[in-house]
């Protein structure tokens, strides 16, 4: 209690945003509809951007403003727009994922979060930043996105899981060391964008080959 009230208000708000980030990750994990999934991804990007700006304001780290701007442009506007376009072009708008048993996925998710929090605890002791308690949440976000990629069978949600994982990594970098060097961040942003475009091409290839975006078809590539 005493340590918490010692935290400045901005620190508390960053904590709250971190918690919202985790909540969105869970919502993505259990979301069946692809369109809602994209909206959730955009929301995650927005929360990430907000928390980065707050960290920048609090600590006076200039380059974090650029990171926040890149996040805003790339993850809140550009990528969701590309995804929406892709979905319209692929005509999988009403594609509802036949997920295996959502309650089980949620329970696995809780276990993952517990593991992530315990893993992050000794690491965050080493970091000297204001935001170090949120490292556990960042790690949990990464692992939950990973879990989402494992449990999904369609291609588009898997890619969204991949992008969400990058969100988690970005958040981890912000909370542990106030962000990565500018060059690295630009590189990653470019990577994600290019990756998205390549994925888009893949989607069309997969669909023309199998008439569906179900990844399980890829397991039988051998000619019989």
């Amino acid at each position: 209690m005493s340590a918490l009230s010692a935290l400045p208000l901005s620190g508390q708000i960053i904590n709250l945003l971190a918690a919202v980030l985790l909540l969105i990750s869970f919502a993505m994990l259990v979301q069946r509809r692809i369109l809602s999934l994209i909206d959730l991804f955009a929301a995650q990007g927005a929360v990430l951007c907000l928390s980065t700006v707050l960290v920048a304001v609090t600590t006076g780290q200039r380059h974090l403003y650029f990171s926040a701007a890149i996040t805003l442009v790339l993850k809140v506007v550009l990528l969701p727009w590309i995804l929406h376009r892709l979905i319209r072009r692929l005509n999988v708008k009403w594609d509802v994922e036949g997920l295996i048993n959502i309650p089980t996925t949620m329970l696995v998710g809780i276990v993952v979060v517990v593991v992530a929090f315990n893993l992050a605890l000794p690491i965050s002791q080493l970091a000297g930043t204001l935001t170090r308690p949120t490292l556990g949440i960042a790690l949990a976000t990464v692992l939950l996105a990973f879990l989402m990629m494992i449990t999904r069978s369609k291609a588009v949600p898997q890619v969204i899981g991949f992008l969400s994982m990058e969100n988690g990594l970005f958040f981890a970098a912000t909370s542990a060391t106030y962000g990565m060097p500018m060059v690295v961040e630009m590189g990653i942003a470019l990577d994600v964008l290019i990756g998205m475009i390549i994925f888009g091409v893949f989607f069309f290839q997969i669909r023309t080959q199998f008439d569906s975006l179900d990844i399980s078809h890829l397991e039988q590539l051998k000619e019989k």
Binding site: L4, N15, I137
Partner: peptide, 9 residues
Amino acid sequence: VHMLLEVPA
């Protein structure tokens, strides 16, 4: 989250 963020480490 309470254990992670709100308990003094």
